[in-house]
């Protein structure tokens, strides 16, 4: 399974999103300072579970869901977490 597929699976299972877009942006960051090999990914996610939560709490839910990938496969995750598609 690719990292994108892994992300898709973990986020879908944990947050039951109504919108989930994952982009692999690794190519534009390969080998820059401090990158130990993991990729860069952009995530746009909409889930009713974010309703009423601050940005930091939404991002924590996303990080918690993908925790097992953060140590190795993911160097950076850019997150846009919305509670509903028009927010």
């Amino acid at each position: 399974m690719t990292t994108v597929e892994n992300l898709q699976q973990l986020l879908t299972d944990a947050l039951n999103p109504t919108e989930l877009i994952i982009e692999d942006d690794s190519a534009s960051h390969a080998g820059h300072a401090g990158n130990t090999g993991g990729g860069h990914y952009n995530v746009i996610i909409t889930s009713s579970q974010f309703e009423g939560l601050s940005l930091i709490k939404r991002h924590r839910l996303v990080y918690d869901a993908v925790d097992e990938l953060m140590a190795s496969d993911i160097h950076a995750l850019s997150i846009k977490a919305k509670a509903s598609s028009n927010a």
Partner: peptide, 10 residues
């Protein structure tokens, strides 16, 4: 903690 780049930018 306020957050990382995405939160600060938003």
């Amino acid at each position: 903690l306020v957050g990382g780049c995405d939160i600060v930018m938003e």
